[in-house]
Structures are given as structure tokens and as C-alpha cells.
Design a protein around this nucleic acid. Structure first.
Lengths: 373, 373
DNA sequence: TATGCTTAGGTAAACGTTTACTCAAATCCT
DNA sequence: AGGATTTGAGTAAACGTTTACCTAAGCATA
């Protein structure tokens, strides 16, 4: 590279940054040393200062708009007090349970004195700097493999929430076997015997729950003497084919879907086939999120509290930040519920018209509450 | 407070943090000074070093896993190289256009050498520290008023994307008047004269576009000699009442909805009233996002490129970080398109059966692509 | 009155980088 | 060959906080 030529993009030239009051400014105005200001402002318990000095410092700091410089503070404290949240850039971070999950995480970690930042996919091996910004991390849906190995390599404590990768201090997962049980019990009670399962296509979407849900379902069906048709790898584009095969040809009377996306597609494809829900088949989906409570008909769904998952994840991370010793890999399961709405009914045709065809009837469900905001 | 008692929660005791290699470690191993290491690793152009030293430093740094401490670096550089993203904790951050929007923002800012963090509502006036973590900010949907005033007070440069609050250097907004025009032109061409508008309830949701869409719509209808019924403040819970009033009583032949949530509710409420789409009324919604392309029928929708909004927003912020002088308040409008699907047809009954009732026909739309992941 | 405790707050080092100066040696120019 | 420039790299200060250690006064006790 020619080192003599003029380079208008020379990175040696940094943009100027406006300055702000420092602890020394406050100290000077109060006639004390920076140390005193620091101790007063940090409310050090074993430090004694006269009330007069205390008041003056606090007032001066407020007037000046003084705020400690976090770079300096962190440099000294050897920690950033930041928790990083990682997920695949491709996942809807606030869709599904993710949104309430973030709320739960933030709630707990803030209370513990940490800031929570959601990292938007900047961290590559080329640019590993961001990793050092974090005292700890929480892995959400489908973080990049690079992210996980870097966290491991750098010994940053982390927790997996609704995801199952790496070697975190803990996994916080939905108890899908509970959800499956409730769904199957409900269907069994209605009299269904032959159930179809519309799974996600593992090729495109490798979340651990893809196989987990399938397996718990398989076992649940076996235990109840029910029958499971179809199963893995239902291509997303073939909702109509799926219904044709399972409902029409194999005569399943109920469908369970891996998630709300698939359920929406089945609802969309049904009129074209002359299939009515729940008269011609019952439908239950995992994920009680928008828009399942608002569809025609509102769907019976398996629900889990994202907020609780988040809270527990945050708690576990906090613990492992305080006592880094604990051994990793603990698995916590969060209970799943079944929210019964208008998409399930007894299998014989002409179900009574008391199903919740009207959105009003869905009021009180979480998804409905959210959507009304 | 009793200062002598034992307090197990004494915050004076900070958790120990493991240490990592510093620039001095690298320097010692290479037999040079930290300054040289710094200059080599930062690729300072006007600094000359022998190739041998250069190679040794780089290799040693790699072996040691050295990564510069950002607190120290930032302390010296007086800047964090972090951009903060702010939005209301209540908004679905990745729902609707927000997701692609984040991608666009991150893409541009990363290229500009900044990290992008999404701040999860920690910043209160009680705890204003997080504000100092940011060299700049981007305001997304409904940031808290506190956030805006703090940014203003501290002179942090910021840009508003798809939102209209505060005094940012620029606003990046969707061109709703274009979307409205396209929607109305489409309906006019099909022969519709009387249009109903299902707006969001301003009481609950105060996004600037609530009034903006309504007003452009009002004007567009006037210009085309069409008629607008209903309008503001349609309560979210009364989809059925809305349809009853506008379609049944006032005989509107088409409905435009403020967003996809409302559209979903109308779709859900229609069967209960014996209304078919598009045979009994046509439906167009703003926001071409999940699940509008997958509903029965797939909906005609007004679409805007979130990625482009994000990119432009990031660009503008980058500019104002380099040249803080520019005067604020510029407004950039991003073009809106109309994606025609199966929910619109001529107003007279019994539309031909060539409408896109099958999800397959919706392939190629953005929302459909996304959902298939 | 000497001793010891408490109160109030100062001193200075340290955290890890970066960079404006400085300077000796090597190289180039005439 | 002698001066001028370039090359290669060291020195030390600075960024803003925090905190271990120290001191000096005030007061009570023996």
C-alpha cells in the first residue's frame, strides 16, 4: 500500500467527541477530592462524610449533570456489567414467546445491577471485540455456532433459554412433554383416536424442539393407545397436500402443529379443500401467540410463559456470575398449559355450535390481550 | 442505617473477575513496548515497523488470544463506538417491518465500525447510566418519553426510523401517501366506490401513522370521488360490529385496515357474519407481514422495505456522527408498494374463482418467504 | 495525661490503551 | 563525505474512576 498518498478515509483521524463533566469537576466545585465524591456518590457504607459535604456533592453533581464514565469505571472494576443476548439474525426476536421472554430476562438482570443488550449479529471471528463487552450472556433462538464457541473459549458464563446449544451453566426449556400430554388428553377426552402431526421441516429449522416435540408426542400417543399419522418433515409449502393426505386419505380427526406458522397455513388451506375446523378436523398448535387466538376459529394452543422462562434464565445467570464455580448443564423445565379455544371438538361431524367462533370468546387469553394493545 | 451490622448483600464486595492477557503481556513476549504492539495491531498507517516485529506481534497476540480491553480503549478514545436502539418494551421488535429494519440498520452501522445494541428498557432517570454507553442512537417504535428527553439533553445524535418523536437529525418514514394512493387506485380500478377504513384506536396506540394514514386516505378518497365510511377509533374488540356497520348497514364494498392485526381480526370475524372475502367485500391491509400472505384468503397488502428504511437510517446516523453540525429534522420518505393477492376483487358478488385461495399462489411475497424459514 | 476509638477525608496507585514526542540508526541525496 | 530524510521504536502522559492506605482532629476512657 502506498503510504504517502492522501487518504480521505484515513482511520487515524477520529471524530471529535464532546466532553462532559467529570468527577474532578464536581470535586473542585465542592472543595473536596475526587475520592470523596466517588465514595459519596456510590453510597459506600463504611465511608463517613459530614452531611453538609454529602449534600453539597449530590447537589453539585445533579446541577452539573454529572454521570460517571462507564469506560473508566469498568476499566477499574474489571467488568462491564453488561449481559449480551444472542440469537440468530434470522429469528423474529419478539415473535412467539421471545418477546415476553426478553421482558423476563431484563426484569431480573436489571434488578441484579446489569444492563442487558441485544447484540445484532456483529460478532464474527474477524471482529471478536463485542464478546469482551459482556460479563455474561444469554443464548436465545439459534445463535451462530461462532458465538457459542467464542463464549466457551473466553469462559464467559452463559445460560441457554429456550435453546439447546453449547455448554451453558444451565438450560431453561419449555416442558414439551407436559404440553404434549395436555394436548393429547384433551383430544382423547373428546374422543379422537387418530392424530396427525405437522412438524417443522428439520432441514430448514433445526431447533431442538423439532425432534423433542415429535418424540414426546410419539410416546404420548403410544401410552394412550392412540395413533399418529404423518410426522416429520412436512414441507412448509404443502399445507393442502398435508391435509389431503392426513385428513382425507388417512382419516385423521385431529391435527397438532409444531408451531403457529404451520397452523396458520392449515387454516388458510382448509377452505380450498372444503374442510371446516373443528367440524371436519380439530386443530391444536404449539405456541399461544399472535394470531392464533384471532383466527377463524380461534385455535386451541399449547402455551408457555415466556416471562417465567426469562426470569428463571436471568436468575440462573446472576447466580453463576456470583459463584462461577458451579458445574454446568443443569436443565430447568417450564410448565406448559393447554389453552382450549374453538378449534377442537369431538371427531364426529356436525359439532354443536357452542364453539368459540367469535373472537370475543377468546378474550382473556394471553395472545388476545397482547394483540389489543 | 446501622453501619456496624453485617450485611450479606453489601455491594462493596464485588464479584471477582478472571483476568485476560493485556497488551503488555504481548509486548513483553515480543521484547517491545506496549506502544509498538498497539500501533501494529491497530494498523496505524503512518507508523513504520519491521516486518519481523510485525509478524511476531501478530502471531503472539493470536496465540495468547489477546483482545484489546474496550473499556480502556474507549476511555482513551472518548467514545464507545456503540449505537443504541430504543423502542417501547411493549412493541414487538421483530414483528412487522421491524425485523428487516433492524437488519438494515445493523448492516450499515457495522460497516461503519459501530456495534449496535438494542437496549431493553433499563434507562430510567433513576438509572441514566446506559445513556452514556452510546455514541449515537436510533429511535424505533414508541421509545419512552424519558429516553427522548435524555438523548436531547445529553446531545447524543440520533435518528428516528419509522417513528416521529423528538428532535433527531433525521426522520426515516414510510411514504404512506404513496401506499394509500396505490391501494385506492387498485380499488377504484376494480370498481369500488365506498370504502371503509378500520383504523387503530388512537387511545391505545399513538403511533404517528395512525393519524397520517387516516389523513392521506381521506384526501385520496376525496381526490378520486370515492366515499369513506367509518374511520377513527375502531375498538380492537369489535371486528364483528365494525363489519356489521360498514359492510352490512352502510354497504361499503371494500375495507382498508390500519395494520395486519386488524385485518386478521376481520378475517376471523367474517365467517360468523356470513361474509366472504373477496366475494362480499374486498380487504387491503397496511403491513405486508406474517400472516397476511397465508390467510384464507391471502391478503392484498401495502408493503414497505424495512431493510431499506434501516439502511437509510443507519447511513444518516453515521453522517451525523462524523459531522455533528448538520441541522436536524430532515424527513426521508421510503416508497410503499401494493402487493395484490386474493382478498381484492370487483365489488359485485360472485367473483370468478381465479383468486389466490391457495397459499402456493402467494409464493414470492416477502411474508411467504419469511414464514418458510 | 496518655491511650484508644471514631469521624472525616486526603493521597496516590492502578485499571489497559493510545498517541504526541523524542531519538538513534540507517538510508538517501548531491 | 556530509547533511537531510526516513525508518524503527521507546517514553511517558493521559483518559476518569475506584479504593487501599494513611492522617489528623475530636472525644471519651482509664
Amino acid at each position: 500500500m502506498d503510504q504517502n498518498s492522501f487518504d480521505p478515509l484515513d482511520t487515524d483521524i477520529l471524530p471529535a467527541v464532546r466532553s462532559r463533566p467529570t468527577i474532578t469537576d464536581v470535586a473542585k466545585l465542592c472543595g473536596v477530592t475526587p475520592a470523596t465524591v466517588s465514595r459519596v456518590l456510590n453510597g459506600k457504607k463504611k465511608f463517613s462524610a459530614s452531611q453538609a459535604v454529602r449534600d453539597k456533592i449530590i447537589e453539585t453533581a445533579r446541577n452539573l449533570g454529572y454521570v460517571p464514565d462507564l469506560s473508566a469505571r469498568n476499566l477499574h472494576r474489571r467488568g462491564t456489567h453488561i449481559i449480551g443476548l444472542f440469537a440468530s439474525p434470522q429469528t423474529h426476536m419478539a415473535e412467539g414467546i421471545n418477546e415476553s421472554l426478553l421482558e423476563g430476562i431484563a426484569e431480573v438482570l436489571h434488578a441484579g445491577g446489569y444492563d442487558v443488550f441485544f447484540e445484532l449479529g456483529a460478532n464474527t471471528l474477524e471482529n471478536p471485540l463485542p464478546f469482551w463487552r459482556f460479563d455474561g450472556a444469554i443464548l436465545l433462538q439459534a445463535p451462530r455456532a461462532e458465538t457459542v464457541t467464542e463464549l466457551d473459549r473466553r469462559c464467559v458464563p452463559y445460560v441457554c433459554v429456550n435453546e439447546r446449544v453449547g455448554n451453558p451453566t444451565a438450560f431453561v426449556l419449555a416442558d414439551d412433554s407436559m404440553g404434549t400430554s395436555r394436548a393429547l388428553d384433551h383430544l382423547a377426552q373428546l374422543g379422537h383416536k387418530k392424530i396427525a402431526y405437522a412438524n417443522a421441516r428439520a432441514t430448514y429449522f433445526s431447533h431442538y424442539s423439532v425432534t423433542e416435540r415429535y418424540e414426546t408426542l410419539l410416546q404420548g400417543v403410544r401410552e394412550r393407545g392412540m395413533q399418529l399419522v404423518a410426522g416429520h418433515d412436512v414441507p412448509f409449502s404443502s399445507a393442502a397436500e398435508f391435509l389431503q393426505q392426513t385428513i382425507r386419505e388417512q382419516q385423521a380427526t385431529a391435527v397438532i402443529t409444531y408451531d403457529h406458522h404451520i397452523a396458520v397455513m392449515l387454516v388458510g388451506a382448509s377452505p380450498g379443500l372444503g374442510l371446516r375446523i373443528p367440524q371436519d378436523y380439530s386443530l391444536i398448535c404449539f405456541n399461544d401467540v399472535f394470531p392464533v387466538a384471532l383466527l377463524p376459529p380461534p385455535l386451541t394452543a399449547v402455551a408457555v410463559s415466556g416471562r417465567e422462562m426469562g426470569r428463571i434464565g436471568g436468575d440462573l445467570l446472576l447466580n453463576s456470575l456470583l459463584t462461577p464455580s458451579a458445574k454446568p448443564g443443569k436443565v430447568i423445565r417450564i410448565a406448559e398449559d393447554l389453552i382450549v379455544r374453538g378449534s377442537t371438538a369431538p371427531p364426529t361431524a356436525a359439532a354443536p355450535n357452542q364453539n368459540n367462533a367469535h373472537p370475543r370468546a377468546a378474550a382473556g387469553s394471553r395472545a388476545a390481550d397482547r394483540a389489543s394493545l
